[in-house]
Amino acid sequence: MTLIEIVITAFLLLELSNVATLYFVPGSKKANAVGVFTAWEKSKQYPEIHDFVKYLVYWVAGSKLIFILLLAAIIIFGEPNLQRISLVALAAATVTFYWRLFPLIKKMDRNGEVEPKNYSMTLGIMIFVFIALFLVAAVVAG
């Protein structure tokens, strides 16, 4: 197994755990599920809003599943150059986290709407490490 395949496979397994958690225990605080947001529990007081929130959670899970399966196909059938390009694409797509999601979760964290406190920083660092790992593996394997 090449470095690129190892990095993509590790990412796939991590994302697969997130998808399983989002589908089957979305209120969990593990595997980057939505239980870290206090709004998850609050939304249960309003069934119409909670159904909408669940719809969005399942939509995210389904979208992630599409990417997981595409990446699995790239690992199995893709040439090394396509695999390397897929790491660059993953890095570019993941950088968008800092455009909309990070400022929002940081604000919610600051307002006490995320549990545990400072989760936004942990998530921000974790996402940065993924991006760096994708790029390093793409360059080293190139």
Results as ranks from 00 to 15, higher is better:
Met1Asn: 06
Met1Leu: 07
Met1Glu: 03
Ile4Ser: 14
Val7Met: 02
Ile8Thr: 04
Ile8Val: 12
Thr9Gln: 13
Phe11Arg: 06
Leu13Arg: 05
Leu16Gly: 13
Ser17Asp: 06
Asn18His: 11
Asn18Gln: 11
Asn18Cys: 14
Thr21Met: 10
Thr21Cys: 13
Leu22Trp: 08
Tyr23Ile: 07
Phe24Val: 07
Gly27Met: 08
Lys30Thr: 10
Asn32Cys: 10
Asn32Arg: 11
Val34Met: 12
Gly35Glu: 03
Phe37His: 05
Trp40Gly: 01
Trp40Ser: 00
Glu41Thr: 12
Gln45Asp: 15
Gln45Tyr: 05
Tyr46Phe: 15
Glu48Gly: 09
Ile49Pro: 02
His50Leu: 06
His50Pro: 05
Asp51Gly: 12
Phe52Ser: 11
Phe52Gly: 14
Phe52Pro: 02
Phe52Asp: 10
Phe52Gln: 05
Lys54Gly: 04
Tyr55Val: 12
Leu56Phe: 14
Leu56Met: 13
Val57Cys: 14
Tyr58Ala: 04
Tyr58Asp: 07
Trp59Lys: 12
Trp59Asp: 14
Val60Ser: 14
Val60Gln: 13
Ala61Met: 11
Gly62Trp: 06
Gly62Gln: 06
Lys64His: 13
Leu65Gln: 09
Leu65Ile: 06
Ile66Thr: 11
Phe67Asp: 04
Ile68Val: 11
Leu69Tyr: 15
Leu71Gln: 08
Leu71Ala: 06
Ala72Cys: 13
Gly78Asp: 05
Glu79Phe: 08
Pro80Val: 08
Pro80Thr: 08
Pro80Met: 09
Pro80Tyr: 04
Pro80Ala: 04
Leu82Tyr: 05
Leu82Gly: 08
Gln83Asn: 05
Gln83Met: 07
Arg84Val: 02
Arg84Trp: 05
Ile85Ser: 11
Ser86Thr: 13
Leu87Gln: 04
Leu87Ile: 09
Ala89Glu: 15
Ala91Val: 09
Ala92Arg: 10
Ala93Phe: 14
Thr94Gly: 06
Thr96Phe: 12
Arg100Met: 07
Arg100Pro: 02
Leu101Asn: 03
Leu101Thr: 15
Phe102Leu: 11
Pro103His: 00
Ile105Phe: 00
Lys107Ala: 10
Lys107Ser: 06
Asp109Met: 00
Asn111Tyr: 05
Asn111Gln: 14
Gly112Met: 03
Gly112Arg: 02
Glu113Cys: 01
Glu113Ser: 08
Val114Pro: 01
Glu115Met: 05
Glu115Cys: 07
Lys117Trp: 03
Thr122Ile: 09
Leu123Arg: 11
Met126Trp: 13
Met126Val: 12
Ile127Trp: 01
Phe128Cys: 06
Phe130Asp: 00
Ala132Asp: 14
Ala132Glu: 06
Ala132Asn: 10
Leu133Cys: 10
Phe134Lys: 02
Phe134Ala: 03
Val136Asp: 02
Ala137Ser: 15
Ala137Asp: 01
Ala138Gly: 03
Val139Cys: 13
Ala141Asn: 14
